[in-house]
């Protein structure tokens, strides 16, 4: 490892909330001897092991996580005021403790956005994103009977840009960071990816309308182009996709 590891003693302010309706509050816990080589979630594991052993009434902290390699999009957390913590282009599970100093107080909060109600502690409900996908985030082809993969050449530039958009992991950091609670970056990533590719272009208009409609229904806010979403997006999805969504949506509406 580049520099030898150090250990940290930290004070954690963790949001505890029993369920959606309950009133939440910050609880303060101390953890000791955390290696700078450990990941943030490993630090949370250590905290939970400690809380289990101490048998605290509120129990271990509930938080979402799964792949722990920055791709499943399940981990969330607002750490010291930033979605996915104080580092750029990563998810919480990729954040390492070397980003912190001995003696730091770390504030850990759940995503707070109207679209993502809290389930428990740091765990939030992001099924709204699934619902938006169900409204139109697909190409309507069924299995079988499709043309050869090389039948339609696609410019590398276009394919690359589609891939940039497709890199979205659906973690919700965009809406969680947005002062308007807007899901536009998420919606635009899918609309843009599929509008760029000839396969998706066929129903681009229908898709843009359906996904925006669902997004509005679910109570997400309106984009005011602050650009906070793209800065906090762990996959650096660009707001230029929002411009493309706007364009697609306008086009779709002008046509009919």
């Amino acid at each position: 490892m580049a520099e030898g590891h150090k250990s940290l003693n930290l004070t954690l302010r963790v949001w505890r909330q029993a369920n959606r309706q309950a009133k939440g509050e910050f609880k303060v816990y101390n953890v000791k001897d955390i290696s700078t080589e450990a990941s943030f979630l490993e630090m949370m594991d250590i905290l939970n092991e400690q809380l289990i052993n101490e048998q605290v009434p509120e129990g271990p902290v509930a938080f979402d996580h799964d792949c722990r390699e920055g791709i499943c999009g399940m981990c969330s957390l607002f750490i010291n005021g930033r979605a996915h913590g104080p580092d750029d282009d990563i998810t919480t599970c990729q954040l390492h403790m070397r980003k912190f100093n001995d003696g730091d107080t770390i504030t850990i909060e759940p995503w707070r956005s109207g679209g993502f109600p809290i389930i428990k502690d740091l765990m939030v409900d992001r099924t709204a994103y699934d619902k938006i996908m169900q409204a139109g985030g697909f190409v309507s082809v069924s299995t079988g009977g499709v043309p050869d993969a090389n039948a339609i050449p696609i410019s590398k530039v276009i394919a690359d840009e589609a891939m940039d958009a497709a890199a979205c992991i659906g973690c919700g950091a965009c809406a969680a960071t947005c002062k308007n609670g807007s899901a536009m970056l998420f919606v635009s990533a899918k609309v843009s990816q599929l509008a760029l590719l000839p396969q998706g272009k066929v129903e681009a208009a229908k898709r843009a309308k359906a996904m925006v409609k669902k997004m509005d229904e679910l109570g997400f806010g309106n984009c005011t182009n602050t650009g906070a979403c793209e800065l906090e997006c762990p996959k650096s999805v660009s707001i230029s996709h929002i411009a493309r969504l706007n364009r697609e949506f306008l086009k779709a509406n002008i046509k009919d």
Partner: peptide, 27 residues
């Protein structure tokens, strides 16, 4: 609408990364 979408709970602290224009947040 945006205030409603933001939800009733506010972050205890939010440090937006550098790069978010002051104006865009305070239009």
């Amino acid at each position: 609408q945006n205030r409603k979408a933001r939800g009733t709970d506010r972050y205890d602290n939010q440090n937006l990364p550098a790069g978010v224009e002051f104006a865009s947040k305070n239009m």
